[in-house]
Design a protein around this nucleic acid. Sequence first.
DNA 1: GTCCAGGATCGGA
DNA 2: TCCGATCATGGA
Length: 284
Amino acid sequence: MEPKYCTTIRHKKFSVADTLTSGQCFRWTEHEGRLCGTAFGRYVEMEQKGDGLTIHGADQSDYETIWRQYLDLDRDYDEISRIVTEKEPRLADSAEYAVGVHILAQEPWEALCSFVISQNNNIPRIRGIVSRLCLLYGESAANAQLAREEADGHAFPTPQALSEVSEETFKQLGCGYRAAYLTELSRRVADGEFDFDYIKNAPIDEARKMLLSLKGVGPKVAECALLYGFGRLECFPVDVWIRRAMETEFVGGTALIGSEYAGVAQQYIFEYIRRHPERFEKKS
DNA sequence: GTCCAGGATCGGA
DNA sequence: TCCGATCATGGA
């Protein structure tokens, strides 16, 4: 597929596969070693060999204006790893393990909506729901015909598009009790009640308060949306897995919470758990 | 059949 | 303020 853009990754430990399959977003699929999907209206396939990254379907302009920021390639994660480990030495294993995972700069609406769907749900099922929403209500990317899975070639639906979907339809698509949340959420956002650019730059507690005013958005979903969709790296989402880790590995709390890169540390912990689930299985 | 998942809401103490 | 029940759904 043309065009394609090749670059050398500065942060050599970066892993595009680990980053895109780390539970931050629910859209990318892997085919023959390529990560395939649509963001910002463009369908691309990403391929990494060592520190070489090829983005099939993107030209230099796309790279500079979209993918470089989306993958957070200009940030020094070695330095962040050092900073968070210094603040919390018990994190050293996780940080070393997961330093290849960057925090994605997703579109705010997609992150917010995806994590409303994620509540009390599991990742495969979340991915299925998101995929169906994209296929049915998301616009086709310009080169969507190249997509290996049809839904991968569709953008995440806009708030306007979802505001026209009935609650009953959301249920039929497997959203369960979250259907009512999606209905109200997309209507309020489509009505312009939320200025995402304002939330992006607002004082963090004000940003939290605004998101928490949405039905279906509690503390965890708000933190995820802020971290993955609004670029607020200090946010620290606590799900059942992180809670278990706090009860075993980080007894007594951690100085990380509230610090500048708490969200990155959280992602390192999550990644560590994800790769060693047997160490964190639910206690009976 | 039971338990669980990147939880939030609600009513009652 | 805090706590338990409840909320759909599909996989283990």
